[in-house]
Nucleic acid binder design. Structure first.
Lengths: 340, 340
DNA sequence: GATTGGCACTCAGTCCTAGCGAGTGCCAAC
DNA sequence: GTTGGCACTCGCTAGGACTGAGTGCCAATC
């Protein structure tokens, strides 16, 4: 059985190792922390922890480092969410405390998060599923090319170019726009898509083909919310922590640039909506990120739409600080977007 | 004086070094290329090249590697723009040959370019300076918050959230929109900004404050085109080439994430509009990129608006292939966007 | 004058060895 | 359950010898 003191030993091993990047030995522990027992006793505890596979010795007769399982226990039971410093709180306020459109807010959030944690930060765009269509615009660009612009009540703008088989004049286009607009205005995204797909007799017969193309595009535009988008910042931080990876960080960076992978990962972490959930090391192996940890938290965008944000870094990271930062930014972002 | 053969020697030194990453010696040269002279002769040529500071020996009695100046001569006089392979041409066609909106096209272009060159690729958004206002929309989000959407005849959409001091009802907003729209519609961006700044008596007196705020935002939106935006892809490639940097690539990645730096750099390379211009090594030192080379080419977006795209990598890169790729993508993109 | 073969020299990289020291595991004693 | 003692392991570092690719120089040759 793992005693209380053993767990305490695990905690300091994690903390010291994260700080120093060196395997930590029994002597170091008694020197730097007042356990009130001797090094030999600590060694016994460490033997226990090793038996439980919470720590491991990289080489015979060297200090110990935490295993993935050790980090897991640390995160679940031992980590105190270190409160942000005043400076960090201030950074959040000044960085995010100005109204701007969604793109801008998310871009700032992700930079902020990467600066607070010194890791790669990720922010997922909110899903549109619960948004409502606020406005639909069809703008002629050139003869047969028009731009369809869809604006939601959450302030998100989706645009798409449509090549028409033949030109429409201004009046015709305005007419089509008015008709379609009246169909979808105020509907939720899924209802809007359904309404557009239904065969509607509301356009003049001679325009049917053209309108069909437009509605098809609009449906695509609406459905596009599903393969969500995410923004990233702080890739340079991965290089800083390169030594924490056994091989090259090249595949890690590649996986990160491949948004699809991250979106799947985010999807699987969707439990525990507003707390911070943590995925450690091998738990991420299916995504090619077996040596990294990912901390995420959900946040709420206007209209109750959910999305996630978080950070990614080597398993050897400052969980206490980073979890607190992720939580703080998620909360602030929720309240900021919820204002609407 | 540098003889023709000496230059030929420089060429093979650059080519071999780029390929092998090893300093190349006289013996290697005579073995791998049929110069028809002995190693001693090559050594004499190399001594000449070294005197001209085109090559340098990293350690006494080792092979030679090109200096920045050597690369410069290579690029200016010796590099043959290696024509793209059939596979590369095909990649461009299939990757870009589908109509989509500007965001999408540029996103694809940048990924394509990074795959063709195995370097970090950059694409600058076209400046709006020559674009005309095609459409102006004001969409209510919540009580005092509206979204202004500006659409240009080039299909670009600029959005901005505006917090009003007090609420406008639908009719009022529609009225304001109609008036402002009639002022700016069809104008070029600079004229539009001027027209909006001019004190106009065209709104009811009681709305003046609100409208003032809106026009101010619109002007900002229009002016926003100047600090342009750029998209990047292939950051992972920098890691692959890490050994080519003396120190860490951390500062390089940082500089790249800082778009401002790159935009200035792009700005300074604006000569030679449609050819490929190359900035090598120390030439980029002011930007913190003293160990990298940047290849760019201008491309033309609809309406004759100019922007640049290019790649960035270590000075030791395959200039022949990369210049050809940059040129090809720029040309293809120009023709694609020019279709409009 | 350009080219060549010969030759002594340089020096980064590699392999080997020895010694150091942090840290462990075990055990008998408390 | 805790402790001090002790033999042992093994990664790390420093020094030394060796190797080999490559050079610079020179006198001889085309």
């Amino acid at each position: 059985m793992v005693s209380d003191r053993s767990l305490e030993v695990l905690r300091v091993i994690v903390q010291d190792y994260v700080e120093s990047r060196e395997p930590v030995g029994s002597k170091t522990i008694v020197d730097r922390h007042s356990f009130g027992v001797s090094a030999a006793t600590i060694r016994n505890d460490m033997a226990l922890l090793e038996e439980e596979e919470l720590i491991v010795a990289p080489h015979t007769s060297s200090g110990r480092i935490p295993t993935d399982k050790g980090y897991r226990v640390f995160v679940d039971h031992l980590a105190d969410l270190r409160p942000l410093t005043a400076a960090q709180r201030q950074a959040i306020e000044t960085f995010l405390g100005q109204s701007a459109d969604l793109d801008e807010v998310l871009a700032r959030s992700v930079r902020l998060l990467s600066q607070l944690t010194h890791q790669v930060a990720l922010v997922q765009y909110p899903s549109l599923s619960r948004a409502k269509v606020r406005h639909l615009e069809l703008v002629p660009l050139t003869g047969t090319r028009i731009l369809s612009v869809l604006i939601t009540d959450t302030g998100r703008v989706e645009q798409r170019v449509i090549d028409l088989p033949r030109a429409l004049d201004e009046a015709q286009l305005a007419d089509v726009r008015a008709r379609l607009s009246s169909v979808v205005a105020g509907l939720g995204m899924t209802e809007a898509a359904a309404a557009l797909s239904a065969p509607a007799d509301l356009v003049p017969h001679e325009l049917e083909d053209v309108v069909g193309l437009i509605t098809a595009t609009l449906c695509g535009q609406i459905g596009a919310n599903r393969h969500d988008k995410l923004v990233m910042a702080g890739a340079a931080n991965l290089v800083r922590t390169e030594h924490d990876f056994t091989g090259s960080i090249f595949p890690v960076l590649e996986a990160i640039e491949e948004q699809v992978v991250l979106l799947r990962l985010f999807g699987e972490m969707a439990t525990d909506q507003h707390g911070v959930s943590v995925s450690i090391g091998r738990e991420n192996a299916p995504f090619g990120l077996g040596e990294t940890s990912v901390l995420t938290s959900g946040y709420t965008s206007p209209g109750g739409n959910l999305a996630r944000l978080g950070v990614l870094g080597p398993t050897r990271m400052d969980y206490s600080n980073n979890m607190a930062a992720v939580r703080a930014v998620a909360r602030y972002l929720s309240s900021l977007l919820g204002e609407n």
